[in-house]
């Protein structure tokens, strides 16, 4: 019985010494990978493991510490049931703090989007007016992004005092850096053809941006802003730890006082709020993407 083979395919039975030699000559790298390249994956894994072991040793991880810690975590989990802050009045305070957190996230994201939008055009290669401006804007955005939101919150507390307003400004500043970078990447990824079309009819630089670039990037930008709103609800839940409003203050107080039922209540509320916002922003994002497609 003969095995049918594709025309041109080499049948193993006919592979004599000469054809093997030919194959070797044609694909030397398949037969003689340099030893270093063959060893590379193992070397990388060995190095990564060594570094991890060093870190474990340096941070004093030990099975005993891990076991006692886990046991204590288990005790806390038992103490968390039922999740309830102890009274209706307290519960209402927590819910209000959660509303504050959502408000901080919303307003912070909105302001960050508003400020990042014009700056992103400066930072994008295809819309900026000078290379120097682009370089400076990008480095500026990098610097703003390198500082964590909690640190920004501490700085803004110096300006407007303790409270949720400092939180809004912190969310705004730290998102300004991240959104500015993302928006400018979206602008750089925009298709050149509409821009060329506007340019060919004699449109100015401003018109090219307005009618060539803007319609392409608006849905992307709106989607990213929504995504950030969702993730900011999580992060603005913690800026209260340094005194910038929201549910974080309550949460950290409850943890410090070992009030585990209140902790569990606050965490569950945060989970629910994030799930709701996640759902809403998913629906809105889908609507924006569909609307964008229809307009095109």
């Amino acid at each position: 019985m003969t095995i049918p083979s594709a025309p041109g395919a080499m049948r193993l039975t006919h592979a004599d010494a000469a054809s093997i030699a030919r194959m070797r000559a044609r694909h030397p790298e398949a037969f003689h990978a340099p030893p270093l390249r063959r060893a590379a994956p193992y070397l990388i894994v060995a190095l990564a493991t060594a570094l991890a072991v060093f870190a474990l040793w340096r941070f004093e991880f030990s099975p005993v510490r891990l076991a006692t810690g886990l046991a204590r975590l288990g005790d806390m989990a038992v103490l968390m049931v039922p999740p309830w802050p102890g009274g209706l009045a307290e519960a209402w305070t927590v819910v209000k703090a959660l509303g504050e957190t959502v408000a901080i996230a919303f307003l912070g994201t909105l302001l960050a989007t508003a400020f990042a939008f014009p700056v992103a055009f400066l930072a994008a290669r295809n819309t900026t007016f000078s290379g120097v401006a682009r370089f400076l804007t990008r480095r500026g955005l990098d610097g703003v992004r390198g500082v964590d939101m909690l640190i920004w919150a501490l700085l803004w507390i110096n300006v407007v005092g303790l409270g949720p307003f400092a939180g809004v400004l912190a969310v705004m500043t730290s998102d300004f850096g991240a959104l500015g970078k993302l928006f400018s990447e979206a602008i750089e990824a925009a298709d050149r053809k509409p821009v060329e079309g506007v340019a060919s009819t004699g449109g100015s630089h401003w018109r090219q941006v307005r009618f060539g670039v803007l319609p392409q990037v608006l849905p992307v930008i709106a989607g990213q802003a929504l995504y950030f709103f969702e993730s900011n609800t999580r992060s603005s839940a913690i800026i209260g730890i340094v005194g910038a409003g929201g549910i974080g203050l309550y949460l950290s107080e409850q943890i410090r006082m070992f009030e585990w039922q209140g902790v569990a209540f606050a965490i569950i509320l945060i989970l629910i709020a994030v799930a709701i916002i996640d759902r809403i922003s998913g629906v809105l994002r889908a609507a924006i993407i569909n609307g964008g497609v229809q307009k095109l």
């Binding site: 870190a55 975590l73 999580r234 992060s235 913690i238 730890i241």
Partner: peptide, 28 residues
């Protein structure tokens, strides 16, 4: 997985500091 990523890491850190003691182990 949703629970793990929704609870902010600082909150986990606050809780782990109580459980595992102060220091980088809780942070890690």
């Amino acid at each position: 997985l949703e629970f793990c990523r929704t609870v902010p890491e600082i909150v986990f850190a606050l809780i782990f500091v109580v459980a595992f003691g102060l220091g980088p182990m809780a942070g890690v």
